[in-house]
């Protein structure tokens, strides 16, 4: 009977415990013409802040989600590293344009303008933000000895993902809009001999939601 109660409680914990919530905000600067077949976008991470840097895997996750699917609605996405390497030294952390108006200055350089044309670039998507652990509770103790080892305890932590995507329209050299994603979630780690992580996929949730919103913004 007791075992059944423990199992039910454990299942409830799995089903409800790792729930994460996402809030998406969209700001559109003005009427934007939709992306056309053959146009491409590049998703880039902002890393100029001293306190945090937008994770490479988050940027590639958004890029993959935008370009994935192989359907007629998928968008051509230039991988961040390919773009930054091809445009070196203009899109490094310390040299990248911080404002859409600076793009106008860049395209006056014929070599840069030609490279943009080769990429058939239509939109720049700049992502700024990070995922952080905001709170930790509980503890787990582990011991290893000649006879074996194991862990016992319970830990929980809250993660928060905050990202903002600024969309620059290369045709008009204007800010097309901004999309922000805020995801919060709690993860649990119960341990009875073996730790069983029940992780809230906060960053993955923010990535998926942001990519969906960007897709609908562009199409």
């Amino acid at each position: 009977m007791n075992n059944r109660i423990v199992t039910i409680l454990f299942l409830i914990l799995i089903l409800t415990g790792c729930k994460s919530t996402t809030r998406i905000d969209e700001y559109r600067q003005g009427p934007t013409s939709n992306i056309e077949i053959g146009d491409s976008v590049v998703v880039l991470g902002r890393r100029h802040s001293s306190g945090h840097e937008t994770e490479i895997d988050f940027v590639s996750c958004v890029g993959n989600a935008l370009g994935g699917g192989g359907s007629e609605k998928s968008i051509i996405v230039i991988p961040e590293k390919d773009f930054v390497d091809a445009m070196y030294p203009y899109f490094e952390t310390s040299t990248a344009p911080m404002d859409v108006k600076n793009l106008d200055h860049l395209v006056q350089n014929p070599a840069i303008a030609q490279k943009f044309a080769e990429f058939n670039l239509r939109f720049f998507i700049w992502i700024d933000g990070s995922t952080e652990t905001t709170d930790k509770k509980g503890s787990i103790s582990c011991a290893v000895g000649p006879g074996g080892g194991g862990c016992f305890g319970f830990a929980t932590w809250d993660d928060e993902a905050n990202y903002e995507a600024s969309i620059w329209d290369f045709n008009t050299l204007q800010l097309a809009g901004k999309i922000s994603a805020e995801t919060q979630g709690t993860s649990y780690l119960p341990a009875v001999i073996i730790p069983v992580p029940l992780l809230a996929r906060v960053q993955a949730g923010a990535c998926k939601s942001m990519a969906q919103q960007i897709k609908s913004f562009l199409q």
């Binding site: 070196y88 030294p89 203009y90 490094e92 952390t93 310390s94 040299t95």
Partner: peptide
């Protein structure tokens, strides 16, 4: 590597 890239970019620009 990131510091070298940054130095090279600043030198060139």
């Amino acid at each position: 590597n990131s510091a070298f890239r940054d130095a090279g970019a600043k030198f060139a620009l």
